[in-house]
Design a protein around this nucleic acid. Sequence first.
DNA 1: ACCTGAACACCGTTCAAGT
DNA 2: ACCTGAACACCGTTCAAGT
Lengths: 209, 209
Amino acid sequence: MVTRSGRTRQARPARKERKEPPHLTPELIHATALAMVDADGIDGLSMRKLAAALDVNPMSLYHHVPNKAALLQGISRLAVADLRIASADDDTPWPEQLRQIGHSFRTLAHQHSKLIVYLLAHPGFIQREGPLWGALCHTLRRAGLPDAEVGRIGNVLLTFVSGFVLAEINGSLGDLLDAADAAEIDRDFEAGLDILIAGLGSVQRIRAE
Amino acid sequence: MVTRSGRTRQARPARKERKEPPHLTPELIHATALAMVDADGIDGLSMRKLAAALDVNPMSLYHHVPNKAALLQGISRLAVADLRIASADDDTPWPEQLRQIGHSFRTLAHQHSKLIVYLLAHPGFIQREGPLWGALCHTLRRAGLPDAEVGRIGNVLLTFVSGFVLAEINGSLGDLLDAADAAEIDRDFEAGLDILIAGLGSVQRIRAE
DNA sequence: ACCTGAACACCGTTCAAGT
DNA sequence: ACCTGAACACCGTTCAAGT
């Protein structure tokens, strides 16, 4: 919830009366906008409502953010920064590491569910240079996959996880299965990863022959 | 392209002058709106632009369609009606049949790419009673899967295909892989289906023990 | 340098008035 | 029964004017 009542209201007589300057910065704007999206969804965010939440004239925002598209891009950067890939220790077996990457993504999706739906539907979310794709490719190479197959297989894993969290968040997953509780859906996610990893093993064997 | 110049302009003196009634019906409205979305995307559709394309006052639409949400629902119904599941002949092996279902979905996604992105991001697209989910469950049961697993596994296949077409349409797939041509992406899709089906086979074996 | 009001071109939707 | 203009409450964004 973004509330305008959270402002400091101290007794000492500030130099500028009770209308202290909000110290408007891109960081503050992005953070507030992300909070609004997390709370009310993409449609709940507008330049004018954002300005109201910051207690500022709508037009002031345009001195720190070029336009709404750039604002959304800034929000995305902020959210993706919350992604934590557990990997980096090469002694855990690669199937377990793939599972961890999948869980990292899904956790991020739960943290910013409203935004992730928007991000998955628009280009430029997963980047070739990002930590997620890097970790994925690294793990697959460690699993013995030839370089030519790494991208292809990595994409299969990524698209499955994307599709899953999307269906999970928009509710169609709970609709198709009769899964009412979250634990059931967790198990479905695990089952999907199992199938992919099992399939990956068999394809790996085939290509190696 | 929806153009307003496509109206008949005959020489005979119509009773109502050159402003003939557009015979506004829900069907015509939905079809025109779908064409607009296919051409310009979801954001390219507005009640006012739709009315302009139909050469009608914006407010007239509200006598045939309750609101924009209902309009989008009607468009979706229209698009989903284009889905053609090839199956129904039980002599083809189940892996091939699964592949065909996946291709049916992907073909639909290509036909209405702009709309499908919207549909996947919003609830209610894949229905339990729909032909796609029905065919999927039927095939999986035929593959010898216990009833308890059918939903779970069907969901894995569906979410993979959803995630794939989404990444394909919004361009992030072509970005991550260096795949420039469509044929390469076709092969990636095939590879994904192969992995899932292979994994499905092994899980099937495990559960059977 | 930063803020702001007015204005422009759009939205979806309601409602009373027309035929 | 169907259509329509005016109006309302919203948008994103530009721009000239203020400090």
